[in-house]
Design a protein around this nucleic acid. Structure first.
Lengths: 138, 138
DNA sequence: GTTTATGCAAATTCTTTGCAATACT
DNA sequence: AGTATTGCAAAGAATTTGCATAAAC
């Protein structure tokens, strides 16, 4: 069984060609992807709707997380392995979007400094999107 | 002349009913707003297209800035008064989205801690979106 | 065999563009 | 008067829903 299939199994998901293929794309590209980017990257091409539904499923299971973007479409990226499904699912890492190549990727080496909010705020999730030029384009 | 008109004038924009009305909404609501939210909030209702074009214009002039959101639509919020038009326009402040009331607002009291990126990265913009529960809903 | 996922059609929402009519300075 | 803005129609992306078919376990 392929390694992506094992990931699906371990999240009690049925193993299908579409899910395998979409998950493969995430591992190959290693950047945050929108539905349309996934669609272009797929060899085994499947329906747009299937991709959207697969993304929702992966999101619920904690296989991917949402990545904010100031362009039109929502992006998704693989969660690091220590992500947990359910309420304790945090991914307080940093995303960097390169203005040259357009790629958004996780900067896992850097931790987000603690942010001290005024009294009364309850914090559940931290999302940092940095923009600029990535090492490859610089 | 109304205060919103003065803001338009000071950015060398023509003063129109739509622009006045849209800018009023931003001052009244004090949260990040999407086009559809603005449309609902407007008394003097104007065309959807006019709102989109007005938002682009305000964005160019530095009257508003984009606010990232994990829901479908792009949101916009008033820039603090020290924002500058053009390339030096930064607004490295924090946005907080309440999961209860759904409002996203700027937390101006808090500065973003400096983030030390690995060598090779050039940073131009910092975007922080915190999620949780706001003092009003807590 | 039962449950779940897929594909297709269609609808909804978000956003942009072209052009003629209108309003601003 | 001249230029910029608006409204309408229409088109184009992004996303969701319903239902019958097909695939997974």
């Amino acid at each position: 069984m392929s390694s992506v299939s094992q990931i699906l199994r371990s999240h009690s998901l049925r193993v299908t060609d579409s899910r395998n293929a979409i998950l493969e794309v995430f591992f190959q590209r290693e950047v945050a992807l929108s539905e349309s980017e996934i669609e272009s990257a797929l060899l085994h091409n499947c329906d747009r709707v299937t991709i959207y539904r697969t993304l929702s499923t992966f999101l619920e299971k904690g296989i991917v997380h949402k990545v904010l973007d100031d362009a039109g479409a929502m992006k998704y990226a693989l969660c690091p392995t220590d992500c947990l499904e359910g309420h304790d699912h945090h991914h307080d890492h940093i995303h960097f979007k390169c203005e040259v190549c357009g790629n958004t990727s996780c900067v896992e080496q850097v931790r987000i400094p603690a942010i001290q909010l005024p009294v009364g705020y309850k914090l559940t999730e931290v999302n940092v999107l940095l923009q600029g030029i990535c090492p490859r384009c610089n």
